[in-house]
């Protein structure tokens, strides 16, 4: 099972704008991108972002050694949304470099727990993580019921210019 996350570049730029707002003490911001899953004939599963919710300032907690630590309430708000809207969710943050972003070791260590919470809430949908840079993006998506993510998901930013990204590669 492969995944393709395809979104309007305007949508991703709006998310970038939100994630670059400074926070009182956190070094980076976190948000949730909500997506609809579409069934594709002979291709990857398509995830189509349709909404974004930033984590509220009050849901950040001080923690050494990480860019941002968010509370259980923030996760619970995302869980409530996907339950209500029958949606997939991508935990989203941004590294402020140009070019391909790379998931950090902290990201890789923490995602399984967060994704498990989403899988428990909405087990019939894939969930995962989206990492943005200033001009690119990568995603890791956990298929339904999977303990491990699919590594070579594509992220397509549709606009002018278009971007086609997968971990380690920029197309276009």
């Amino acid at each position: 099972m492969k995944f393709k996350v395809r979104a309007a570049s305007q949508f991703l730029d709006n998310v970038r704008r939100d994630l670059t707002r400074p926070h009182a003490f956190a070094f980076e911001r976190v948000g949730f991108v909500y997506a609809r899953e579409a069934v594709v004939d002979g291709g990857p599963s398509l995830l189509l972002p349709f909404a974004y919710a930033p984590v509220a300032d009050a849901h950040y907690m001080p923690k050494e050694g990480v860019g941002a630590c968010i509370s259980g309430d923030a996760i619970r708000e995302a869980m409530a949304f996907i339950l209500r809207e029958d949606a997939c969710v991508l935990h989203t943050h941004m590294h402020e470099n140009v070019g391909m972003p790379k998931f950090s070791r902290v990201d890789v260590r923490n995602y399984p727990g967060v994704v498990r919470a989403f899988q428990n809430t909405r087990p019939d949908r894939p969930h995962g993580a989206l990492l943005l840079s200033r001009d690119a993006a990568v995603a890791r998506v956990w298929p339904v019921g999977a303990a491990e993510p699919v590594m070579d998901s594509l992220v397509i930013s549709v606009g002018r210019p278009m971007g086609i990204f997968s971990e380690g590669a920029i197309y276009g």
């Binding site: 393709k4 579409a38 069934v39 594709v40 004939d41 002979g42 291709g43 398509l46 278009m162």
Partner: peptide, 20 residues
């Protein structure tokens, strides 16, 4: 190549995967 002899809506499930 996925080629469909038919109206476009009959291959909508394949067309969804197109980026352009």
């Amino acid at each position: 190549i996925q080629a469909f002899k038919g109206e476009w809506i009959s291959c909508a499930a394949a067309l969804k995967d197109c980026d352009v």
